[in-house]
Design a protein around this nucleic acid. Structure first.
Length: 421
RNA sequence: GCGGGUAUAGCUCAGUCGGUUAGAGCGCUUGACUGUGGAUCAAGAGGUCGUGGGUUCAAAUCCCACUACUCGCCCCA
């Protein structure tokens, strides 16, 4: 039979409450911190990403889903959304009529596409939630506020074992000379490094710092770090950022070797790691991208943003929180009717319960009571409401608590009162 | 792009040295039980053994190819 294509999957009803819970927590965080939602197309001109994200990045040169449209135009399924959001910001001049230093806070939720080999916590179609603070200001307090919001968000989902890593990767003027210097230093020790590191030397020298081999690590320790290479201004910016984190009592680790895979990052970069997904332990990634807008043809604009993987966030949700979410998703009541007359009456009662805001289910088939009760139980409902000829005549119905087995006869008003929560 | 593992019932998995009718548990259906779910017992339904080829008297089992899934590497959310 025809199945989902590699790296894509169906999110089935049983898991949907967990996804909705993460989305709801994120929306609440964005609401509190003053972000507005933006929805951009899933397809964009390929050029947006090759220029925005960077030709040399893995994402662009080996992971994009790129197609030629009928008019010979090259289009790409978005591998990330920051470039799209900045494009929209410029295209619609969202910066018009802004006071000096005022920023625009935007967030998005949606699928992204990268043609990678799937594994735990990694899919070809995956879902990201991200936020961007765009405008004329690069105040480090903006960055600290973003981290603060993420901190609140993670804790509200019960994710408490995550770790914040921060670094300054310097601005575009500082990074070039540094990279040159770094490559020179690596070249001197290249013959002692592992194969992967030699490859990284060719493609993305900063990545050498991530090597897991002890041998390499010893050699790497002697290499110059970006932190030592950045100028006074970037350094002061980073210091301010850290002091704003301190003021918020947010713990962090400075990792001078942390780099990010997208070309547009400048100065502050951060990562939140955690979860139990093996190699895919990055929950949130983000940073500053002051040059991005100009790269894609816009006016000089500052920006700071982040994204996290919804898939990974759902998988990282602690079992206690997941259990709470599932409990909340249960229907309130399932109607069990006995006979054709009772079926019509049950539909009538169900309508009343639903009008009162309750989640009420019923089976349409005429079944033996035993089977009907089993269906009520399987539906996950907290209560069963039994409706037979006796009940219809008396105007009171048997409401059974499916957990305790306790049962009482109540009229519709009393039932609504009891089921409300 | 590179490496390892796996593929048998709806689900989780057994299946010996290649051997005749491919099993278990859970789930499902029915009954014990005629207005009360979960427990117990009994019976029943359910299989192109991933696909294609090969070896053999005989293949779920051995060999080859392919596909899918999965775990790593690279990289990232």
């Amino acid at each position: 039979m025809i199945q989902t294509i590699r790296g894509t999957r169906d999110i089935l009803p049983a898991d949907i409450p967990l996804w909705q819970r993460v989305e709801e927590a994120a929306r609440e965080a964005f609401r509190r911190y003053g972000y507005s939602e933006i929805r951009t197309p899933i397809i964009e001109k390929t050029e947006l990403f090759t220029r925005g994200v960077g030709e040399a990045t893995d994402i662009v040169h080996k992971e994009m889903y790129t197609f030629t449209d009928r008019n010979e135009e090259s289009i790409t399924l978005r591998p990330e959304a920051t470039a799209s959001v900045v494009r929209a910001y410029i295209q619609h001049r969202l910066y018009a009529n802004r006071a000096p230093g005022e920023v625009t806070k935007l967030y998005y939720i949606g699928p992204m596409f990268r043609r990678e080999r799937p594994q735990a916590g990694r899919y070809r179609q995956f879902y990201q939630i991200g936020g961007e603070v765009i405008g004329a200001s690069d105040d480090p307090m903006i960055e600290a506020e973003v981290i603060e919001m993420l901190d609140w968000f993670l804790i509200s989902l019960g994710i408490e074992d995550s770790q914040l890593l921060v670094n300054s990767v310097g601005d575009s003027h500082e990074r070039g000379p540094y990279l040159e210097k770094l490559r020179e230093s690596i070249a001197a020790v290249l013959d002692r490094l592992c194969n992967d590191c030699r490859h990284r030397y060719e493609t993305n020298a900063l990545r050498v710092f991530d090597c897991k081999f002890e041998n390499c690590q010893e050699i790497i320790a002697g290499l110059p770090t970006i932190t030592d290479a950045i100028g006074a201004e970037s350094r002061a910016h980073f210091e301010q950022f850290k002091s704003h984190l301190d003021a918020r009592c947010i713990a962090y680790t400075v990792n001078p070797r942390m780099v990010r895979g997208l070309d547009y990052y400048s100065r502050t970069a951060f990562e939140i790691i955690g979860g139990h997904l093996g190699a895919q332990n990055t929950l949130v990634g983000g940073g500053r991208y002051d040059g991005l807008a100009e790269t894609i043809g816009g006016p000089p604009t500052k920006g700071f943003g982040f994204a996290f993987g919804l898939d990974r966030m759902v998988m990282s949700m602690p079992e206690a929180e997941a259990a709470r979410v599932r409990e909340r998703a249960r229907p309130d009541v399932f109607l069990v009717h006995l006979g054709e007359a009772a079926r019509n009456h049950a539909a009538f009662i169900a309508r009343k319960l639903r009008a009162a805001g309750l989640a009420a289910g019923m089976d349409f088939t005429d079944r033996k009571m035993k089977k009907a009760m089993a269906l009520a139980s399987e539906s996950g409902a907290r209560f069963a409401l039994i409706i037979g000829d006796n009940e219809i005549a008396a105007g009171v119905y048997a409401l059974k608590n499916l957990e305790t087995g306790e049962q009482q006869s109540l009229d519709v008003e009393a039932i609504i009162e009891k089921l409300k929560r």
